[in-house]
């Protein structure tokens, strides 16, 4: 499998505190990686460094190209933890927000083809009905779905999502994770997702990455769920995550494929 996102010895620190300490991993095409870890463990900072939003040390390559030379940004869809909502009423429609996800070009006009792509992405996230409404007038959950449409509109090969489901109601969350699961399985989209919602999303995730300043664990879901050594090494937070993965909806997220649970 070709490497999609590779980090080698990535470090980052604010003036005094070290946030990321020599993190290395290789995410391959088709992976669906759940990035987990305690609050303040550096998950969001890691995503920002990977995207060049914060300047860290170490080597990062996207689709085999060093970050500093990377130009094919339409291959990446990004959804941040915080919605870009401010107190100022930015008079921009949901449709215009999604349009921002298409590759940048000169001029203010919008072509028919671009509008078609925008509407298709909004259809995917069930936000087509809000197309003409002012973005800031939407609820936080509706805004989050519009922002997901913005991340999807360029048909990315890599989706990087920072706790995207926090503001969503149960129905929207199911739709959200089902959509991500479909994009991963049917279209082969590689996903890197920060989440605390390991129960529901655990059904789709293929690999876990556990970050607490260091990269403590990076491996398959099976290794993560059924390795007592891993649980012991990772401490109470990881044990809680593993319990959550097992107990959510009363069954193991690995389903019938899980050898361990058959013996329970």
């Amino acid at each position: 499998m070709p490497s999609i996102l590779k980090a080698e010895d990535v470090c980052f620190s604010y003036t005094r505190a070290t946030v990321l300490d020599h993190i290395s991993f290789d995410i391959q095409s088709g992976d669906y990686v759940g990035l987990i870890g305690p609050n303040g463990g550096g998950k969001t900072t890691l995503l920002k460094v990977l995207l060049g939003l914060e300047k860290g040390q170490g080597k990062i390559s996207l689709f085999g190209t060093p970050l500093s030379e990377f130009k094919d940004w339409q291959k990446i869809g990004y959804l941040a933890q915080k919605s870009p909502v401010s107190q100022t009423r930015f008079p921009i429609s949901a449709e215009e927000v999604v349009l921002m996800g298409l590759p940048s070009r000169h001029g203010a006009d919008v072509s028919r083809a671009e509008l078609k792509e925008v509407h298709a992405a909004m259809q995917q996230t069930q936000t087509r009905e809000y197309a003409g409404r002012i973005f800031q007038d939407l609820s936080i959950g509706q805004q989050q779905r519009v922002l997901l449409a913005r991340a999807l509109v360029s048909k990315p090969q890599l989706l990087i999502l920072d706790e995207p489901s926090t503001a969503l109601d149960a129905g929207s969350r199911d739709m959200f994770f089902d959509l991500l699961g479909r994009l991963n399985k049917q279209d082969g989209v590689t996903i890197l997702l920060i989440t605390h919602d390991t129960g529901e999303v655990g059904k789709h995730i293929s690999k876990f990455m556990y970050v607490d300043k260091n990269l403590v664990f990076f491996g398959t879901k099976e290794e993560f769920c059924h390795s007592p050594e891993v649980a012991k090494k990772l401490g109470p937070f990881a044990q809680h995550t593993i319990d959550h993965l097992h107990n959510h909806h009363g069954h193991c997220p690995l389903g019938a494929a899980c050898e361990e649970c058959k013996h329970d």
Partner: peptide, 16 residues
Amino acid sequence: RDITATCFDEPFAHTR
């Protein structure tokens, strides 16, 4: 487009 994207959501504009 670049200016409105930067004013609306600077980190996202960077990823475009």
